[in-house]
């Protein structure tokens, strides 16, 4: 028996919106501590990882660990039948569920849907706990804007960190450009830019993955970029009171 009730159903919709461009079919894992999801994009260059803690739900019960294989596209079709202010409850009865039930509740209506599940034997990757040598926290819409703008100039974006801050740069056929984001300790937390740089990094990424993921910026006003040289970058959106949505992206390397 599994039941998880989102107080703010709109949050669940934003999470699905953020990952739908990157992953097609996912295994949703539920256990006593909460819900998690880990899936690679079709090219296996990026890895999406969601973690939602049971304490963040209005109601949460999961007697036995469950794996529910679902198509993100079909999940979206069901969620499109809900309002952004609805409370959303996920529920299954059996131990080996073949469907996942959804209840959408608002002041004046209640809806019930069932999504057919599928069995997906997806490889799960072990992401080692890593001490990243550069960790940058910045406004999420700023990061989104930079990736979108520089992505117009070149398909690869460089990220260089230093004690002064973080620099995004592109060198394309049409020319080149760079954007340096300065550290600021403004009292408005959503506008703060913080850099912890033990070791500076200089990495290059395919910017299309950033732009496919940038709807996740609706989840949090700040984004955390964790980097180590020649390691995948981690883009993390903290989901207030619930957990986090992360994108791990393999860097491009000069052969």
């Amino acid at each position: 028996m599994f039941e998880a009730k989102f107080e703010d159903g709109g949050l669940f919709k934003k999470i699905v919106e953020a990952i739908k461009e990157l992953v097609k079919n996912v295994n949703l894992e539920a256990n006593g501590t909460g819900i998690s999801l880990q899936a690679m994009d079709t090219s296996h260059v990026a890895l999406v990882a969601l973690q939602l803690n049971e304490k963040g739900f209005k109601k949460y019960r999961c007697e036995k660990s469950l794996t529910m294989g679902l198509s993100i596209e079909n999940l979206q079709k069901i969620l499109k039948c809900s309002g952004n202010d609805d409370q959303i409850t996920l529920r299954t009865q059996d131990e080996e569920p073949t469907t996942l039930s959804f209840t959408f509740e608002s002041k004046n209506r209640i809806s019930e849907f069932q999504l057919n599940l599928m069995s997906l034997d997806q490889e799960q990757l072990g992401v080692p706990d890593t001490e990243y040598s550069s960790v940058v926290r910045m406004p999420s819409n700023e990061f989104t804007k930079i990736c979108r703008e520089l992505g117009n100039i070149n398909e690869a974006i460089g990220i260089e960190t230093s004690k002064e801050g973080i620099k995004f740069y592109v060198k394309g056929d049409i020319g080149e450009g760079q954007v340096s984001v300065k550290i600021n300790d403004t009292e408005k937390p959503e506008e703060r830019v913080e850099c912890e740089v033990d070791e500076p990094v200089n990495l290059s990424f395919a910017v299309r993955y950033f732009n496919l993921f940038n709807k996740a910026s609706a989840l949090s006003s700040q984004v955390i970029l964790s980097m180590s040289q020649d390691q995948p970058l981690v883009i993390e959106y903290i989901i207030e009171e619930m957990g986090s949505l992360k994108l791990y992206l393999a860097p491009k390397i000069n052969d």
């Binding site: 260059v45 990757l125 995948p232 393999a250 491009k252 000069n254």
Partner: peptide
């Protein structure tokens, strides 16, 4: 020129 490795190169299958 640059290569784009997959994420599997960095993280092992569990």
């Amino acid at each position: 020129n640059t290569q784009q490795p997959t994420i599997n190169r960095f993280y092992d299958n569990q």
